[in-house]
Write a protein that binds this DNA or RNA. Structure first.
Lengths: 197, 197
DNA sequence: GTCTATATACCGATAGAC
DNA sequence: GTCTATCGGTATATAGAC
C-alpha cells in the first residue's frame, strides 16, 4: 500500500520526495554539492535527515536523480549525431535540439556547470559513458579531419550553447525564445556556418 | 635567517611552498576544492599536514594564493573598460587583453571554472568586489541601452573567451596563438562586430 | 514515514617536541 | 621546517521506537 497509484507518484504520493529534490537543487546550486549537508536539505524541507534517507538511499543517489534529465539530453543528442552527415543545416538542427534541452532543464543544468567537479565525479561512478559525450559532440561539430582552429571553434560553440544555463544571471527576464534564437545564431556564427534556414 | 635572499624566495627558499601550490592546483582541479583534503595535498608533496600549515595559514589562504593572478586579470580589465568608448576596435582590444590573461593563467583559471561555487564562496569572503566583475564586463560589452538579445550575445561572448580554459581537453596541443586568434574572432563574431583590424 | 539517538570516520586546525 | 598527537566539530549513514 505504499502508493495507491503505482507509477503516478508525482500525482498521488511522493510530495515529500519532490520537495526534497527541489530544495536540493536550490541548495546544491548556490552552495555546491559537497558544501551542502543533508541536514540543511532536510531543514529546508521541514523533515529530519533520517526521513530524507527513507526517500533517497544516499546523497549521491539524490544528486543522480536531479541530473538525470540533463544526462538524458546529452545522451539523446550524441545518439542522434552518430553517423549523421555534416552539412550546415544538419549542424544547425542538432545545435537547436541540444540547446532546447539545455533551456528546458535549466535549473539542474546550471547546478551542473556551477559544480562541475562534483558532478563529474558522481557521473564517473554511475554513468561513465556520459563523460565522453562532450568530446564526441565536439568532434562531430568540428567535422571530419578538422584543423586545430576548427576544433577550437567547435568547443567554443558548445560553450555558447552551455551559456544558456547561466544567462539568467546577466539578462534577467529574457524569454526562452530570444535565448534560443540568439544563442543558436551565435553558435553557428562561431562555427563559421551560414545555413540557408 | 629565514631567507638568505628576502624577496627572492622563488629562487632561494620556498621550494616546498611552491610544490604545495602546484600539487594543490592539480588536486583542486581534478577533485574540487572541498573534496580535496589537506592531507591529500600534503601526501602529494611528501610532507605532513602540519608542515603544510607552516607555509599557508589556512586552506582558504592556499586557495586564494592560487587564484590571485586570475583575480588580478579580471580586475585589470574591468578597471580598463571603465569610462571607455564602445566602438568595434576598442571592444576587440579589450577582448584580446582579457583573453590573453586567461590563456596565461590557464591552470588556475580552469580550476576556477571547474569548481565555480567553491571559488565564489571563497571570493565572497575576501574579494567581494570581484564577484560583480563578470556582470560589469558583460554590461559594457553589451553596450549602452542594450536589448535582451545584445545582452545575451555579450554573455555568450564572455563564455567563448572563458572556453580558452577548457579547450585543452578537446584540442590537445593547440598553440596559444591559434587559441587566441580563433577565440577572439569567434567572440567578436558572437557580438556581431566586424572591426577594421 | 517520521522521529531520536548514535556509530563511525574524516575534516581543518593547533600544541609542542625536535 | 617538519614531525607526532590530538582537539573540536561535522559529515554520512544506520538502528530502532513510534
Amino acid at each position: 500500500m505504499a502508493q495507491p497509484y503505482p507509477g503516478h507518484d508525482i500525482i498521488a504520493g511522493g510530495g515529500t520526495k519532490m520537495a526534497i529534490r527541489d530544495a536540493a537543487v536550490k541548495l546544491f546550486t548556490s552552495k555546491g554539492f559537497e558544501q551542502t549537508s543533508l541536514r540543511e536539505v532536510a531543514d529546508a524541507v521541514g523533515i529530519t535527515k533520517a526521513s530524507l534517507y527513507y526517500h533517497y538511499p544516499s546523497k549521491l543517489d539524490l544528486l543522480l536523480a536531479i541530473i538525470e534529465p540533463v544526462v538524458e539530453n546529452i545522451r539523446r543528442v550524441v545518439a542522434e549525431v552518430d553517423g549523421l552527415g555534416h552539412d550546415a543545416d544538419t549542424v544547425r538542427r542538432v545545435l537547436r535540439d541540444y540547446l532546447r534541452g539545455m533551456i528546458r532543464h535549466r535549473d539542474a543544468g546550471s547546478m551542473c556547470v556551477r559544480d562541475t567537479v562534483a558532478i563529474y565525479n558522481a557521473l564517473s561512478e554511475r554513468y561513465p559513458d556520459v563523460l565522453e559525450s562532450g568530446k564526441v559532440l565536439a568532434d562531430w561539430l568540428a567535422g571530419p579531419d578538422a584543423s586545430h582552429e576548427a576544433r577550437v571553434r567547435a568547443a567554443a560553440a558548445l560553450s555558447v550553447i552551455t551559456s544558456a544555463l547561466t544567462t539568467d544571471e546577466y539578462v534577467p527576464g529574457v524569454s526562452d525564445e530570444v535565448l534560443e534564437s540568439t544563442l543558436l545564431d551565435a553558435a553557428t556564427c562561431v562555427l563559421n556556418i551560414h545555413a540557408t534556414a
